[in-house]
């Protein structure tokens, strides 16, 4: 039962619930018109304490496509936060104005705190370097759409695996599906946190191979998930400059990949995928962003108890 729930971490959703969301999203993608009045009369509040064009607009588009309305702020500098209001007070007031809330916050754990004081479902739209469950839903939906099933997949994840919240969420979630194998490619400074690695190996007994080389492993994976090295997650500019060019995917490198490779990226990219790669039929990152709207539509509808 998803109605009325908070979605803070992708782990809040069971494999069955993930499948329910993905299946509804696929139906919405196939026939969006059919769902155009599904959330009529409902209001989504978008509380964005740090800038994020894509996630916010994707949520807003999702709600508007289902006939719902949207309120919110996209810059904490212009909101009551600037006056020093704490999260608990903000959510206690704003959850009276909307039927569902999505929150992005630079502080890790902020949406969980908000959910403890909210009268309506809270969706985590990204909290610092921690979790980003709707990106994970988008990723799962994309894999299902192109690979038809989420099982027996070898997936390489490349880039910033230490701070990248999309990666943490994806790892934890995919680990729960049958026979998933991970190749984790990153500079040694940006490897996944050891506690995360230990916990998914302990819980799900998945195979994880860590490496620093993209070239050596590109030829034997079904999915390649590229991520950017985010400037804002670094404490020093020098460190950022040193690492940002570490992994750039070019047509040359892709020659060695499988013909049926699914190439994904949560976007925005900086320079980790060269523009020439966009023409490659295996590059699906813009399609992934399109599917993200349907993933969010399905999630909002189910949390509001309106799936058909």
């Amino acid at each position: 039962m998803l109605q009325g729930r908070h979605i803070i971490d992708a782990s809040d959703l069971s494999v069955e619930e993930l499948s329910t969301i993905v299946n509804l999203a696929l139906k919405m993608n196939a026939d969006p018109e059919k769902f155009s009045n599904l959330c009529k009369g409902k209001i989504l509040a978008t509380l964005f304490y740090e800038p994020s064009t894509r996630t916010r607009l994707s949520f807003e588009s999702a709600m508007l496509r289902m006939g719902g309305s949207v309120i919110g702020f996209s810059d904490a500098e212009t909101s009551s936060v600037k006056k020093g209001e704490n999260i608990a007070d903000t959510i206690r007031v704003l959850s009276n104005y909307a039927h569902i809330v999505v929150m992005r916050h630079p502080r890790e754990g902020a949406p969980l705190l908000a959910s403890q004081y909210s009268r309506v479902p809270v969706i985590n739209g990204g909290d610092g370097g921690h979790q980003h469950p709707t990106q994970t839903l988008t990723d799962i939906l994309t894999i299902k759409y192109y690979k038809k099933d989420i099982r027996d997949i070898k997936i390489a994840i490349c880039g910033d695996l230490l701070f990248g919240r999309t990666v943490h969420s994806l790892l934890k979630t995919l680990s729960r599906f049958p026979n998933i194998e991970f190749v984790l490619i990153s500079p040694s400074e940006l490897r996944i946190p050891y506690h995360l690695k230990n916990s998914i190996i302990e819980k799900h007994n998945v195979k994880i191979f860590e490496t620093t080389s993209l070239e050596e492993h590109i030829n034997d994976v079904n999915v390649l998930y590229m991520t950017r090295i985010q400037k804002e997650r670094f404490f020093s500019e020098d460190e950022y400059i040193k690492l940002k060019g570490s992994y750039i995917l070019t047509p040359e490198k892709l020659k060695h990949a499988r013909k049926d490779l699914l190439l994904m990226h949560p976007l925005p990219r900086v320079n980790e995928i060269s523009y020439e790669v966009d023409m490659d039929p295996r590059a699906k990152y813009f399609e992934q962003a399109r599917l993200g709207v349907f993933a969010r539509m399905a999630l909002i509808a189910l949390l509001l108890g309106r799936s058909h």
Binding site: I87, R107, G109, L113
Partner: peptide, 29 residues
């Protein structure tokens, strides 16, 4: 969030470890 918000009182869950007293933050993990 627990380092700046007065409402977020730090909460932890013990991570079993023989040598060290390690706790996972319930907010940020």
């Amino acid at each position: 969030i627990t380092t700046i918000d007065d409402y977020a009182i730090s909460e932890f869950t013990l991570v079993p470890n023989e040598d060290k007293l390690q706790y996972r933050c319930n907010y940020c993990e």
